[in-house]
Nucleic acid binder design. Sequence first.
DNA 1: CCACATCATGTGACCGCTCACACAACTCGA
DNA 2: TCGAGTTGTGTGAGCGGTCACATGATGTGG
Lengths: 331, 331
Amino acid sequence: MVSRQTVSRVINEQTNIRDTTRERVLQVMRELDYRPSRAARMLATNRSRLVGVVATVNGVHYGPTRIIAAIEDAARANGYAVILTTVRNLSPVELADGVDHLVREGVEGIVAVAPQAHALDAMSALAQPVPAVILQADGSRSDSGLSVDNELGAALAARHLTGLGHRSVAMVSGPSDWSEAVARTRGFAHTVQASGAAIVGVAEGDWTAESGYRACQQLLGTGATAVFCANDQMALGLLHAVTDRGLRVPVDLSVVGFDDVPEAAHYLPPLTTIRQDFDELGQRAVATLLSVVENGRATRRPPIPPHLIVRASTLPLASALAAPRDPRPGL
Amino acid sequence: MVSRQTVSRVINEQTNIRDTTRERVLQVMRELDYRPSRAARMLATNRSRLVGVVATVNGVHYGPTRIIAAIEDAARANGYAVILTTVRNLSPVELADGVDHLVREGVEGIVAVAPQAHALDAMSALAQPVPAVILQADGSRSDSGLSVDNELGAALAARHLTGLGHRSVAMVSGPSDWSEAVARTRGFAHTVQASGAAIVGVAEGDWTAESGYRACQQLLGTGATAVFCANDQMALGLLHAVTDRGLRVPVDLSVVGFDDVPEAAHYLPPLTTIRQDFDELGQRAVATLLSVVENGRATRRPPIPPHLIVRASTLPLASALAAPRDPRPGL
DNA sequence: CCACATCATGTGACCGCTCACACAACTCGA
DNA sequence: TCGAGTTGTGTGAGCGGTCACATGATGTGG
């Protein structure tokens, strides 16, 4: 027979326990299939070891899902459990609602997968009770490097296209209230202009393939020979629309996406795109959050560099000219 | 001044509280920004109001993600929070690990998004401490209708294709240890055979586009004029492979998918597919689980009927013959 | 061999809530 | 007017751990 305190010591892997005693306790714990009550521990220590995640999986699934999985993984590895709440959209109201729910559950910190500008504002406005980190923020704000370097990614795309000889390029951007979208647009524009090429059109989408399809309409007649889409879904929609109009990708038009979803390699044609490391992003989010929770201060790190994945949807402009089946390639 | 018990009564919305007292308490709660401690309540009531979700988001994201979101929504509406754990795969070990983690967290019930046969066995083998429901099981076992009617969906696809005049059809199935995959294969085979058409080939994929691409290889030479793929991603891969080989869909080959992911409408060509109602599935999972948790017994319901969504990837066989640009359409 | 540090274990109080019950202040019909 | 409900509110105990401290067993140097 041992006291509760001794059991407590064994559970918490404290020192100052005789090995034989520890073994005896563990043995009995096994026999009784004993599980410490998290509630009691929470009550006594005033720590929940719970991390909350707010996310929206509306429209775009791949990125957030991967991120959430990575967060859960990292949190669990650090002894935290993840409590998830999904919101329909990232409006301040929904977000506040989600955060409130999490706080009520007693989370020690919150990861918001909320790349919208106003979401950032909303979060910093209300996340008083517990520390929070915001994922995929702009990069320009106080986001501790919790984002992929969207500007760099877009620059990679731009450099690729201009390097292929394209002089008139267009873009399908994400919604302008998403900081990632803004960063991508900015990075693309800068780099294209720096190379002396011209941006002959920008259509704003909402990340969905459907919006990419519609964007094509707006870009017709711009004469662009290459289009950069702010994500793969929109690129898919654009591919569809372009094909419907009898244009051939990449012969008549080069297309670049962003994300590198697993399906992108099988789009028709396989999509040249920018790969983001969502797993790393999720891990960093947890690392940052926990360092705030446990040590009080966050570690700032440079944003994660994305990579260019070249597939069949881009071709040198020259090729189109070499085999001109159409009087005028481009949109 | 009131006693703690009175406050407790207000929080739990019990009767026998004078309105003025209640108001006074609420007022003070607001002033102090008071939040009841979930830990203490859990300890006292021995109820966590926590629902655990185990899922894998490996390879296939859309379905599970939608389901998880729906579960969270429904759970929250019922006053429960969702604690999520993702596993790399649905092997008994990983699954047991995930479940164990959830049990340790004190969840009152578990939803396993685990459509693999052995997962079902593993779950029923070990989920002793708390009730659990398994999503998207076979339909043939004790799964309380927590699945889409996969057989019906596959039958819909089969009927559509044979109705278009196809007599030699092939299939790209899911992994044979996934109950959904088996159900789809079975439903497809039955219906095709009942119509007098022949299944000239079955290739097994792993749900990924990549595997759909490879499946094409195995199906070559079978002479199939239509292929049913057990999910949209594999259909995308097949589309890619088929196009690489110079065949045209739907003229030379009709293709049907399953799931109706948002992108399917923009595949090239837009994919005829079977739409599943993932949201309904998630809601039902929670409803069933909570009815077990709270009332002790589950409500059985018939599986959810899926729907055929006809797009451009399927065409009557006659059309191919009417405009024969290739000596022999089909694979 | 004793005084004193060190190690191993036990004890009382408390975390913030709910339960069961006690109790006072009102009904209200006979 | 009184006893018997009804209604509103308070009290002690306990949920299962942890904390701070007390205590007994074991070592260690002079």
